[in-house]
Amino acid sequence: MKEFITQSVYFGVVITFIGYEIGLLLQKKFKTALMNPLLIAAILIIGVLVLLDVPYEEYNKGAGYISFFLTPATVSLAIPLYRQLSILKKYPLAIFGGIIAGVLTAMVSIWLLSLGFGLNHEQYVTLLPKSITTAIGMGISDKMGGIVTLTVVAISITGISGNVLCEAILKLFKITEPIAKGLAIGTSAHALGTAKAMEIGEIEGAMSSLAIVVTGIVTVLSVSVFAKFI
């Protein structure tokens, strides 16, 4: 009976949905970024799979149908970006200047730290797209020969640190312009940071979500150059 259930393609889909719902409930209850629904769901699902002795491949036979929607969902990110085009036209220099500076900082600092840690090419390109939205980051990691799963983990850690620390960091470094605050959060901590930016203010939220997509695209271009360095 156990084999019959776990081998059904619906098994992977159902436990993924249940795990995510539990994650959402916990996040609502505790209201902290540490209670990230994605991480909670992943930990719960791994627990269930280990307990039932189901290998990842078997889970993914069903769960793979969920991943099917990743490309269409990434394509759909164009819609929120399109709605914010008017802001982009109003402050092109501040937006592109800030984001390009941020992406270069990301590339150079990840490169230098990877050199310092003595990482190999596979490990280095796994981390290069760590500050951008998971949808685009997974694609970059895959294309460059990185370990996609670990890229997702690095992206989650990045988002959670950004979400938890952004208010203190921005205050410490006297970044007070709402536009600059939003860009700083979105460029460094993608969607998880943006959730906090939306709480801080409307302009911050809009700028942060704009920064997610622009940073993703600028990073795609920069990674193809920086990937060759290690």
């Binding site: 501040a94 937006i95 200047g97 800030g98 984001i99 500076a101 941020g102 992406v103 900082t105 990301a106 600092s109 990840i110 730290l113 990877s114 840690f117 990482l119 490990q123 981390l127 760590k130 500050s131 670990l150 983990v153 690095a154 850690i157 990045t158 640190s161 950004g162 620390l165 952004c166 960091i169 921005l170 470094f173 970044i175 007070t176 312009e177 536009i179 600059a180 605050k181 860009l183 700083a184 959060i185 460029t187 460094s188 901590a189 920064a211």
Partner: peptide
């Protein structure tokens, strides 16, 4: 260890540089 350190440290660096430059 590199994954944790790099993810954490670079996030703060990127945030500060992006914010300062656009401001």
């Amino acid at each position: 260890i590199p994954l944790l350190v790099i993810s954490f440290v670079t996030t703060i660096l990127i945030m500060v540089v992006t914010g300062k430059v656009s401001q």
